[in-house]
Write a protein that binds this DNA or RNA. Structure first.
Length: 424
RNA sequence: GGACAGGUGGCCGAGUGGUUGAAGGCACCGGUCUCGAAAACCGGCAUACCGGUGAACCCGGUAUCGAGAGUUCGAAUCUCUCCCUGUCCGCCA
């Protein structure tokens, strides 16, 4: 969410930001409307507060007279009239603020100046690691998974629906191993606090991290309560300190959590849905950091490196892609995608999206810190990234580490957890 | 799910329908004292929004005592609904 001052004083920057996202045309009317509403909001506030001040003064006089045993009928009459006006103006104000905030909640963040303009075609590969296997025939993961009895797609679909996966045997153990490896590395080597979170969150949390209101149709909603299944542990982790003020000494704050993630993937039907590529429920270890505005840029580099470390340990070739403005997510100001190469599918698969949200989420979720120099509380900057998402990692493992004899070589770092060097 | 008891500032805690943004204490910050520290004493110490020239400082105003609605000239204080916490009972992994 943007500061109202942005609308009032930096409207050109806001428009330019929307243009860089390629969204100005669609959003221009909303921005114009916000400007109008902001003006009328302030006018109404002035009018209503003036009357409230008058009423407070009159009421005090009533009190004085009554204590003196005098009648105050005339003043009460006056106060009642003011009260009626106040009620009317308050309703007007509430309506204005409701509309204004609904507009503000649906405007995306502005990307940083360092982010290239344009759409997906302007994304930049900033580095690659490892060597993709190309020109070799590799069995796709859904075939390997079925052949080795690691994944039971049919029964997953039977008990839950398409896009729900059953892992079994060494496959199930692989999921558990990935969880332990990632959490161990992030807590022991990267200094994150391990958190175990609820997977059901309330509406305020979903608004805080900006899944709502815009993406409600992508969320699994509970039927009897105003609550949702989390699409990522980002939601509970980032909202952990919602409506709180942290001392600056606690920054940067680093938290990690494993969680299942639930996504309806509305409108994505038929696109890259084969095997494990796009599913409705999956597992993920998430990294979240809070930082000061001055350090959030470096913090993003750090967080991205932490996610990359896992790919290196798994010996999977990957590339880091700096997303262009138009391809950057709604709440993000800057995003690096980590893409792993799956040699069976023959594609780069996104396994992590590392973002700096600047104060966009912090403003929605009201997460602030008290500066060490004693100044006014400021909004923190929030960052997060997957570290990493399991299904595509499993796909890449089953494809990249596949041997000519069809066996899968387990990367060194995973062997202790999995208790095997090869899957056959 | 049922029955009680509660939700007040960073924390503890007082609060009568009327100068209560809210006594008192703790914590914290500044000062006096001290060679230094402790103690003692003095002072300061919420947030958001609106306005006063844009910014800093400052000044004025409004709102905030779990949330919302109501009664009233006036609500932390009365009424209703909801949320949350505690205790007991029931149920349950």
């Amino acid at each position: 969410m943007h500061d109202l001052r942005m609308v009032r004083e930096h409207i050109d920057a806001l428009r330019a930001g929307m243009r860089r996202r390629g969204a100005l045309e669609v959003l221009a009317p909303a921005i114009d409307r916000a400007v109008t509403l902001d003006k009328s909001r302030r006018d109404t506030i002035q009018a209503v507060e003036e009357r409230k001040a008058a009423r407070n003064a009159v009421s005090q006089q009533v009190g004085q007279r009554k204590r003196a045993g005098e009648s105050a009928d005339d003043l009460q009459q006056q106060s009642r009239a003011l009260g009626d006006e106040i009620a009317r103006l308050d309703r007007e104000l509430a309506e204005t603020e409701r509309e204004l905030s609904s507009i503000l909640l649906e405007l995306p963040n502005v990307t940083l100046d360092s982010v290239p303009g344009g759409g997906e075609e302007s994304n930049v590969v900033v580095r690659t690691w490892g060597q993709p296997r190309e020109g070799v025939r590799v069995e796709p993961h859904w075939e390997v998974g079925a052949r080795l009895g690691l994944i039971d797609f049919e029964r997953g679909a039977k008990i839950s629906g398409s896009g729900f996966i059953v892992f079994r045997g060494a496959g199930a153990r692989l999921v558990r191993s990935l969880m332990n490896l990632m959490l161990d590395v992030h807590t022991r080597e990267h200094g994150y606090e391990e958190i175990w979170v609820p997977v059901v969150v309330n509406r305020a949390s979903m608004i805080g991290t900006a899944q709502l209101p815009k993406f409600e149709e992508d969320m699994y909603a509970l039927k009897d309560e105003d609550a949702f299944l989390i699409p990522t542990a980002e939601v509970p982790l980032t909202n952990l300190y919602r409506d709180e003020i942290l001392p600056e000494s606690e920054l940067p704050k680093a938290m990690t959590a494993y969680s299942p993630c639930f996504r309806r993937e509305a409108g994505a039907a038929g696109k890259d849905t084969r095997g494990l590529l796009r599913v409705h429920e999956f597992d993920k270890v998430e990294l979240v950091r809070y930082a000061t505005p001055e350090t959030s840029g470096q913090q993003l580099e750090l967080l991205t490196a932490h996610a990359e470390k896992i790919l290196q340990l798994l010996q999977l070739p990957y590339r880091v892609v700096q997303l262009a403005s138009g391809d950057t997510g709604f709440a993000s100001a800057q995003t690096y995608d980590l893409e792993v190469f799956a040699s069976g599918v023959g594609k780069w698969l996104e396994v992590s999206s590392c973002s700096n949200f600047t104060d966009f989420q912090a403003r929605r979720a009201n997460i602030r810190y008290k500066p060490a120099d004693g100044g006014k509380p400021r909004f923190v900057h929030t960052l997060n990234g997957s570290g990493l998402a399991f299904p595509r990692i499993i796909a890449a493992l089953l494809e990249h580490h596949q041997q000519p004899d069809g066996a899968i070589v387990v990367p060194e770092a995973l062997r202790g957890y999995l208790g095997a060097e090869r899957l056959t």
